[in-house]
Amino acid sequence: MAQEHTVKAFDNDIASLRGLVAEMGGLAELSLSEAMEALVKGNQQLAEAVIARDKRIDAIEAEVDQLAVRIIALRAPVADDLREVIAALKIAGVVERIGDYAKNIAKSTDKIEERKRFEPLALIPAMAELAGSMVHDVLTAYAARDPVLARAVVERDARVDAFYNSLFRSLVSHMMESPATISTAAQLLFVARNIERIGDHATNVAEMVYFAATGDYLTDRDERV
């Protein structure tokens, strides 16, 4: 907080609330990168570690909920403090969804066949890296309360969407050329969709970070589909 509160405990509450959100974000970030590694290399053990980690993310989300409700009930925060608490509550919900998408990607690991011969598999990590960098930067923006960085993340989402569209085309043409790969290609289509959603959610977090930091809504941008 910019200025210290007379009630020291209040500062501590807000600090741990932010700490919890950041911790969740760190877990989700790692889950995404490990899910992609598991998927590309066919590492089932790593995939299971990602799936197991989701429980931890859910547990922290519950903790954030409780702490936020307690802060509101006991300390009745106003103005920027209230924004901070509300933003933490909402961001935790979105980060939990990002964790779910990472888990879904990990679950596709054992459904990919002919890993070495399947070319689009080499494209997906680049897309995931882009979405992962959005998640990373938006969490940094949250930690730094940096509206400029948050806005930059929002602008990057268009690139993930473009990536998704080109991957979609390439996977569909793969399916048409060799029907034997349809099941794998369809799985990858789901994976690409999950990554695209992660990008959208990173954008949502960016909007909340922007709001929490400035009190304004991030406007003047095209509606996403």
């Binding site: 600090a15 932010r18 700490g19 950041a22 911790e23 760190g26 970030e29 969490l139 930690a143």
Partner: peptide, 20 residues
């Protein structure tokens, strides 16, 4: 890490699960 880490919960600045 950014100057913002000072004064915050260390999890905010580091946030990596291994760091935590």
């Amino acid at each position: 890490l950014g100057a913002h880490v000072v004064g915050q919960d260390p999890r905010v600045g580091l946030r990596h699960p291994e760091a935590i």
